[in-house]
Design a protein around this nucleic acid. Structure first.
Lengths: 146, 146
DNA sequence: CTGCAAAGGCAATTCAGCTGCAATCGGCCA
DNA sequence: TGGCCGATTGCAGCTGAATTGCCTTTGCAG
């Protein structure tokens, strides 16, 4: 059952409670772009007895296995996101923390071209756009909800 | 004399030995894209008796004053660079650490367009392209030189 | 030249993230 | 179904970047 198990097996990882729980959290649409600390907090709320160290270890394993992607948004801490099928970049509101995903082939193409022109074989990139919601009311609501 | 002094004054900062020295280091073409720790090491080599805490404080003040820009390359530590006149983004070789600056109006324009379309007023962005030098020999040499 | 707010030095602190080790658990095999 | 062995976990302590508190020193306005 459950694709979590198969996903974990595919990555060569044993199916353990911490890993399944963490995977569940990441799959929750409300918890995309989440930090290690926040994963830990949610586990505590769920009453799961899982240590912070384990959270870090599991997230690293998932990262190695390509199950998720690590982002370095501004603010110091790493943020994780399940690796879907599609590549995309991020647009972040610095006031309410909202994260919007986007894709743009023109930018992607330009990047490759630039790297090529400079004698670099591009392996990956990070593109974050930072700003503030123009809809300030909605933004405020989001901010209040943390 | 020296534009350092005027630059510091303009920022509302007293002209002190640590600040002048750090500014000098940043102005050295060999030391663009340098970390706080590395600034500190260079100061030690110069025989300057300046504490690491001061380096961090000064770099933050410079950042606040807009004299320099902070980058969060992969690898954890912040990297600093004098804010020239021109905006540019960065292309980083993960093997030798070489940093190439580039500018591309098409990407810039696209970013604004994307932010706009998503109801965000863009304040700034970070775009880093990561890869490996295709000239592996030269790359190796750079890597050896740290 | 003098006073005092700004700045610096040092050591201790914070904070994210990682590790070593002993105890525990998953799951393959009989 | 039960047992074994290596993978995994929890804990506590560690690391490395960056910051802060506190007291001393210094730039510079008057």
């Amino acid at each position: 059952m459950s694709d979590q198990n198969t996903e974990l097996r595919k990555a060569g990882l044993k199916v353990t409670l911490p890993r399944v729980k963490i995977l569940e959290i990441l799959q929750d649409p409300n918890h995309q772009h989440i930090s290690a600390e926040d994963v830990y907090k949610i586990l505590l709320e769920l009453g799961e007895d899982i240590g912070l160290a384990t959270v870090y270890r599991v997230l690293n394993q998932f990262d190695d296995a390509g199950i998720l992607t690590r982002h370095h948004f501004e603010g110091g801490k790493s943020v994780f996101e399940l690796t879907g099928n599609s590549h995309h970049d991020h647009l972040v509101c610095l006031k309410c923390g909202k994260v919007i995903e986007f894709e743009d082939e023109i930018i992607e193409a330009k990047q490759l071209e630039i790297a090529d022109k400079n004698g670099i074989k591009l392996t990956h990139h990070s593109l974050y756009l930072y700003g503030e919601c123009t809809d300030t009311e909605q933004c405020q609501k989001n901010a209040d909800a943390h």
